[in-house]
Design a protein around this nucleic acid. Structure first.
Lengths: 355, 355
DNA sequence: CTGAAAGCGCTTACAG
DNA sequence: CTGAAAGCGCTTACAG
């Protein structure tokens, strides 16, 4: 790999001192316009760019924002990792920096990785995601005065540092109101892992929106348990086997919603026609399944923008919730009052195949 | 952010010269064992780690491998970006480096971004993906002696540099043979964008495997066109409306396969029972739809491992194909000879909902 | 095996 | 507005 042009080479070629070249880059107002123009011409000719390491060494910065890749698992958070990473990378680039990826064990051992990164001055700041209850990273970083922003809450009263998160309760409530407006009166909720605050938050949205509409939101209509992103079919079965089963199922994530699809298929029922279904996250699958799954899209672009803003904010710790956007597809938008005419809808579907 | 411990501090505390500390890290064999032990103790006590920038400045390396995030679009390559990034990051970390993310326009302007990264010595090496026909990056990088490995071919005879890719033809052929073993005699192919070599490669796999089995692989059974990852329903309709329609559809990617699901649903036909369907990429959707979609899983871990190996290989340019793994699910594994007894299968399905 | 010194490529007071 | 100089924290010949 060829050695890159140095500032010294630019200064020699331009016939000015090295400080003048540096000023052309870092403090152009200090230069005579004529000089500035000349130096810039030479810089362009030579394709000169200051060496990141040398500049960083001097300015005590690395220009790198660390992001820990979450471990692989289906569902909730990672379904939009692509999108978040893209948005984060773009935003960080707008501030002239880059994103550095790393991995770390999720437990407390992971802090060793963070310590290493900081001891080496590899990163200037960190973006946290995959937060968990009692996440030790926030306090650990705050104690060391490391700039960081958390995408996700630690769900403890004393969370330190800036954070942004998605308002699960308001998102789910949107979905419930949408279903109510389509005539649904009995709406069930499918959720994973009873103990996680994320699920509790989303379940609360369902409960509150049901109360608001005067609907039953008792535990009868609440199916929770199993793995995090599988078993939606079991949960759906539990609710649909009730004497007066729900006519709509609100799931805490898309994977569970598609589990409900599976149960409906096994019973020859059609999502969106016989039973409405909604998900959460608007994962790629939601758009591509049949019928399309109504889901809640996290505003990752806005979140990423805000994360990067807060990264360089010295203000008092800020916490912000972003409301997800309801993306309506066929799994919920058949009018429920049409249910008695479901057969004609089916006939429609039968003839809709283009020849 | 607190200043990190420096080598000078370690040397003072240990009562040895700075070179000795450096040797303890970079050439431990040069030290008296006793001295080494002592220096290491002090290093541990102080949590000392060499500053990345200073070390990089001296050794002319950055310890960073650049990876350009592909722009967002559904399907083929990005469905497993998560997994690839995770695997790549882990592998790069095993060599003591990190992955730096960046974005660049896909056209020739994008080279400016690469030039900037190199002029600043921000990265030591690059991993390329989202290659396209006549991709200018490979030659551009080779001319500048930049170490790089391409995940994906440029499909030109003169491709320079190391590359790895997935063997689309062999993958699809696996799928076809699997369908043949389940009794299918008429197998159609759904592909996007007639002109892309990736599609041609996959279509070739279908054609060759059909010939091998003595099946019709004429253009009659080949449905190609439309957007890259939508319109699978149209393509499927084109084939299913033939006088003697195929009993199985092999799609060049999962999104098209799920488009076929959509058409089948509209005609009240069941994937895997009435018409077998297979996809490519084993995207998250494949596992979660009903019925599960048989698909071809790219061995991203092996690919990432090999990419990182080649990154530091001075050998003659290497090109390697990796065979994807057929992941069999219900969309194809119903025995086709059972087709006449489809009703009993359906009955089975009807009673399979757990109460 | 160890110590004193140069230098990687920058930025930034400092004196002119 | 410009020039000569120090120093960021390392690594690595070089002489002892």
């Amino acid at each position: 790999m060829a050695r890159a042009t140095t500032l010294a080479e630019v200064s020699a070629r331009a016939g000015v001192s090295r400080q003048t070249v540096s000023n052309a880059l870092n403090a152009p107002h200090k230069l005579h316009p004529e000089t500035l123009r000349h130096v810039r011409t030479v810089i362009d000719e030579l394709g000169y760019r200051p060496d990141t390491r040398a500049r960083g060494l001097r300015t005590r910065s690395s220009g790198l924002v660390g992001y820990c890749l979450p471990p692989h698992h289906l569902g909730s958070v990672n379904v939009f990792l692509d999108e978040f990473l893209r948005a984060l990378t773009s935003e960080v680039e707008r501030s002239g920096r880059h994103v550095l990826l790393f991995t770390a064990p999720p437990d407390d051992d992971g802090l060793g990785v963070y310590a290493d990164l900081l001891a080496r001055s590899t990163v200037d700041a960190l973006v946290l995601s995959e937060t968990r209850v009692g996440d030790p990273r926030h306090e650990w970083l705050a104690e060391r005065d490391v700039p960081f922003v958390s995408f996700g809450r630690t769900w403890t009263g004393s969370q330190v540092g800036h954070w942004v998160d998605v308002d699960g309760a308001r998102g789910i409530a949107q979905g419930v109101r949408h279903l109510v407006s389509h005539g649904h009166q009995r709406i069930g909720f499918l959720g994973p892992h009873e103990q996680t605050p994320v699920t509790e938050d989303r379940a609360r949205g369902w409960r509150e929106a049901c109360h608001e509409a005067g609907l039953d939101a008792s535990d009868r209509f609440l199916a929770i348990g199993g793995e995090n992103h599988v078993g939606g079919d079991h949960l759906a079965a539990k609710l649909l086997d009730l004497p007066h089963p729900p006519t709509a199922l609100v799931a805490a994530n898309d994977a569970l919603a598609l589990g409900a699809y599976k149960l409906l298929a096994a019973r020859d029922l059609r999502p969106g026609v016989d039973v409405a279904v909604t998900g959460f996250d608007d994962s790629p699958s939601a758009a591509v399944v049949t019928p399309g799954l109504t889901s809640l899209r996290q505003p990752v672009d806005h979140i990423a923008t805000r994360v990067v803003e807060l990264l360089s904010s010295d203000s008092e710790p800020v916490g912000e919730l972003f409301e997800p956007e309801l993306v309506i597809r066929s799994s919920s938008s058949q009018c429920h009052s049409d249910r008695t005419t479901a057969n004609s809808v089916t006939a429609d579907r039968r003839t809709s195949g283009r020849g």
